[in-house]
């Protein structure tokens, strides 16, 4: 464990807790894409299949449980909570996220480190995580501006993957044979997807005005 990875995990934890807190406190999920939340629940479900079979550390297992619990709770709130579900604008959140899952599954069947059930699903979860934010970013474009909690959520989510890239660089130089191209490329693509959002987030912060994404 290195400081970059710890910072990444804490930022990731903060992003899901910020979102869960927002939804639980104000009983609203306006501006949040259910599609992205469903994709994240699938990412964690396919990423942590080995939670019962392989034990790495208390920290690792605890974080996996928190991520699984929070992502499924957010989906539950948005789909089934009597008050929250009414604030979900389904006619704006129309990204066909199944179109994201199929290419990721096909790619995972083609490019992976080992052709085993767990490894292919784990690789699928990596590819899916890279693109899972797309429905949310599309929704933001549609709704034009975002409230600061959703902005913080995306900002933290992008930051977590940025820290992970620093972690991979650090591990590459400090651990012999630590080479995982698939993880690195997926993580880089994911961070690049956030890059333009970061740019507009920074502009709005600098000019101290509401975040307006270009059409």
């Amino acid at each position: 464990m290195n400081i970059f990875r710890l910072a990444g995990d804490m930022t990731h934890l903060a992003s899901v807790l910020v979102l869960l807190l927002k939804i639980h406190t104000i009983k609203s999920c306006a501006g949040v894409s259910l599609k992205t939340q469903e994709l994240y629940a699938i990412v964690f479900a396919t990423r942590y299949l080995d939670i019962l079979t392989s034990f790495v550390s208390i920290y690792n297992t605890l974080m996996k449980l928190i991520f699984l619990g929070s992502s499924f709770s957010i989906v539950w709130y948005m789909k089934y909570h009597k008050t929250v579900r009414r604030t979900y604008d389904r006619d704006q959140d129309t990204f066909r996220h199944w179109f994201l899952m199929l290419p990721c599954l096909l790619l995972a069947l083609l490019i992976h480190e080992k052709f085993t059930f767990f490894e292919v699903l784990w690789t699928f979860s990596l590819y899916l995580e890279a693109v899972a934010i797309l429905p949310q970013l599309v929704l933001l474009q549609r709704t034009r501006n975002i409230d600061n909690l959703t902005g913080q959520y995306i900002f933290l989510l992008g930051g977590y993957r940025g820290f992970y890239i620093l972690n991979w660089i650090y591990r590459y130089f400090t651990e012999p044979h630590y080479v995982h191209w698939i993880t690195w490329i997926a993580g880089l693509v994911q961070t690049l997807l956030y890059a333009d959002f970061f740019y507009y987030y920074f502009l709005s912060w600098k000019n101290n005005k509401k975040l307006q994404l270009p059409a």
Binding site: R5, D9, H12, R47, D50, S54, V56, S57, N60, M63, K64, F67, E113, K114, E119, W122, Y164, N167, H177, Y178, V179, H180, T183
Partner: peptide, 10 residues
């Protein structure tokens, strides 16, 4: 590089 060692990350 055993791919299992990469599973120490979340």
């Amino acid at each position: 590089t055993k791919s299992s060692d990469s599973k120490d990350e979340l």
